[in-house]
Design a protein around this nucleic acid. Structure first.
Lengths: 130, 130, 130, 130
DNA sequence: GTGGTCTAGACCACT
DNA sequence: GTGGTCTAGACCACG
């Protein structure tokens, strides 16, 4: 289910954070679901437990996960909302990125093509980012 | 001409790199133009010379600057092409960002609005990014 | 009678401890009353017997419960006093909490309102805490 | 300036978090101030750098600190607001605590005395909590 | 020098 | 078994 790329620029713990968010956004993880324990995931991914712990803590503090010591970690009640909230912040990223593209001489037409492509078919596997 | 924000998330050396690129893209810096020396710029910006040096080295290795020992540092012949090449790489960034936005539930319509906005008026001063 | 929230931050065994204390404080459990056995309660609450056991041990060691082997578990003679003793310790909590509130800029007036509210009507069902 | 109690129930990293918050609330740390580096503080407190790091990360994610890699960690712009926001959450704690006190038979009069005491003189040194 | 990430291994409280 | 905290030691990018 989870997969991590140790050679990626993005920190391992952040890759995990993003994957949880995506699974929540896609409805694969639903409120109340139990997610892999810190230790079990650290084994299956061959990663130090502390790294998983950091990812889960991050998600917990943002209200996406709820940890119950001794029992496990669960998807929070308002998880889907918290995740969509992150989508709002990514819009700001898009804005500044488009500004740069314009400066570097990328045509508007080319950008629109990309968007049409991503929003029509299955489009995009998050290839580079993950 | 150059300006740097010490509190920004983006490294100082990268801010300088980007500004040189932008000036080239906009035609403010043309092939053969002489740009400020490491030492002079470090004084006017109150920045460690090593930081300027790193920015210039980066630009030199990518064929945007040419250093002529004893004379100064100049904009290279194919600088404009090299800069536009960077624009191409930013397109890849855009692609994965749009993929994420889709997953996080951002509407296509909203994205198109942003692009129209940036590509119509003066749109964007890179303020957020820097 | 007892109810437990598995998703709560506070440990399950502590939730049980508190409920016994509250029932004693409110006079619902009086000295000599027999309370549910470890096994029966573990069944009705669908909880591990060890968890109940820990709660009862805690209460026994503090003189609130008395276990009579072969007969059951009962509310002790001085249970009400022991419970009120716990109230005294909570007063210390209050003191440091108020100190913090002052530091964090909460107005005295606002605090008094809360207290008036809790001490006038039915006020509070411990909902947040549990 | 900082001081930590290794024997306390509250985690070391949380003690540091609270002290930073208090210094901000009291105006000792002002927006833009640089606070002790992770390493230097870890030395003066004889604590592992990771523990300090965790405390600072926590404060950073809550908008109280701003980290500039390679330069240091600084008090954020809206730090005071973020800190007061925490005060609001402590009010909820107070509410449930008062509810419990009422149940455990603590007189309203006694509570009012404590509050008057804390809000009149210098009152309270956070003794237990820190 | 700075902050940030990661590993390895340990201890604790709770179920 | 679970999550949470802490230590020790390492590496990296940045200034």
């Amino acid at each position: 289910m989870f997969q991590v790329n140790g050679m990626s620029q993005t920190p391992v713990y952040e890759q995990i954070v993003e994957q949880v968010e995506i699974f929540v956004a896609k409805g694969i993880f639903q409120s109340g679901s139990r997610i892999p324990s810190v230790r079990s995931l650290s084994v299956t991914l061959s990663i130090n437990p502390n790294t998983i712990q950091k990812a889960y803590s991050d998600l917990t503090s943002r209200g996406i996960l709820t940890s119950v010591p001794g029992k496990g970690i669960f998807i929070s009640e308002g998880a889907l909302d918290s995740v969509k909230e992150k989508g709002r912040r990514k819009v700001a990223e898009l804005k500044s990125l488009v500004t740069e593209l314009k400066i570097f001489g990328v045509e508007k037409k080319e950008i629109l093509e990309i968007i049409d492509n991503e929003y029509s078919d299955e489009g995009g596997k998050l290839s580079d980012k993950m």
